[in-house]
Design a protein around this nucleic acid. Structure first.
Lengths: 196, 196
DNA sequence: TCAATTATGGAACGATCACTTTAGAATGGG
DNA sequence: CCCATTCTAAAGTGATCGTTCCATAATTGA
């Protein structure tokens, strides 16, 4: 099947490391030379394994979505006792845990990326990817709200789903700015409380 | 007093134009050559007038604060009939008007800048400046909340000021992502409604 | 064992980065 | 009018950007 020399590094581990670098410094703030150093891989090996800086970046975003964001949104998706305030509180807790975790960079890689899309060097296909994922996440939130606030009209539900997303984005911004887990949790609690 | 050749361009207009470029593309996404083109000024003139890219950037942030952000926060500062829900609603309206205005780039320059501070090339003094301004803005919001929600304990007030700031940041993120003025206003209205 | 295939290490590519230099043109006080 | 002063235009600075090339090393199927 596969002839040729074997890869000397763990590709998935390298991908995860690259994701951390992008998460910290952003797309524009990360150079291939820095990645090469952080991953302890030559640039030629990096290009052989991941194609280009842009392709590696997109792979990192996909990895982030699958391994970091999706588990959080699973909190409010079926099958679960996911509906209602209990689900929402668990969602915010998971989100804040992710955004302030000591094992990963602070804040949200997706929102950090979204802030760079107007950079003329930012890859346009990644921009489209981010828009698509934003819509997908909103749909998950909308389904949750529809299942949890059954007594309200659909316009209210749509707006509430948007408001919760808005608060989530605010949490990401303030987590990236260094706000403590306790402060963020207190805010999220207050929000869920005044919601009912 | 001033001998020598006169400047051939309007310095404040050039500053405003530079601010627009940074607001659109971010600090890392903007090159001096692009600024030179956009401002229709040679790089040497640009350096003579503004010192360096970093100094120009900081001047743009100061200009943004004075001419764009401060007027919004004046909405909830004394002397005004600024307290209470009426003040808060006007604050959100002004904020959303600013973030989705057709005459300026979308979103908030400060929050866009805050997302770039971990870029190793980002000037550290600007990072400190942003942190300081964030605290200043929080204090304004806290004073407003203390004057508007007199019946609550100070912990509740601090947390509420934080929550409102959080929603504001969320608005900035979603405005930058292209969300419509109507959608944002509906969300802000819903938030102010459930607040009481 | 030999050819085909893939990975590695390092140098090198042109382009662009922020910034400076140099030479000359415009200005105003004495 | 002269000259110090300031601005403008264009070329040039070394450094870094993303990416590729090339020789060599390692692995496999035939």
């Amino acid at each position: 099947m596969s002839a040729g020399r074997k890869r000397a590094f763990d590709k998935e581990l390298a991908l995860k490391t690259a994701m951390y670098v992008f998460w910290n410094r952003g797309y524009g703030g990360t150079s291939v030379a820095q990645l090469s150093t952080a991953l302890n891989i030559n640039t030629s090996s990096l290009y052989a394994a991941f194609g280009s800086k842009d392709k590696l970046y997109k792979s990192c975003l996909e990895y982030y979505l699958e391994h970091y964001i999706s588990p959080v949104y699973a909190e409010i998706q079926l099958p679960n006792d996911a509906t209602g305030m209990k689900g929402l509180k668990r969602y915010f807790e998971s989100l804040i845990d992710l955004f302030v975790s000591l094992e990963t960079p602070k804040g949200c890689l997706l929102i950090k990326s979204a802030g760079e899309t107007e950079n003329p060097l930012f890859p346009s296909d990644v921009k489209e990817f981010l828009i698509k994922q934003g819509e997908r996440i909103y749909q998950i939130m909308l389904s949750f709200v529809q299942a949890s606030f059954t007594g309200r009209d659909s316009e209210y539900q749509a707006s509430l789903a948007n408001l919760i997303t808005m608060v989530s984005n605010g949490i990401a911004v303030q987590a990236a700015a260094g706000q403590s887990k306790e402060t963020l949790n207190k805010c999220a609690d207050q929000f869920t409380c005044i919601l009912q």
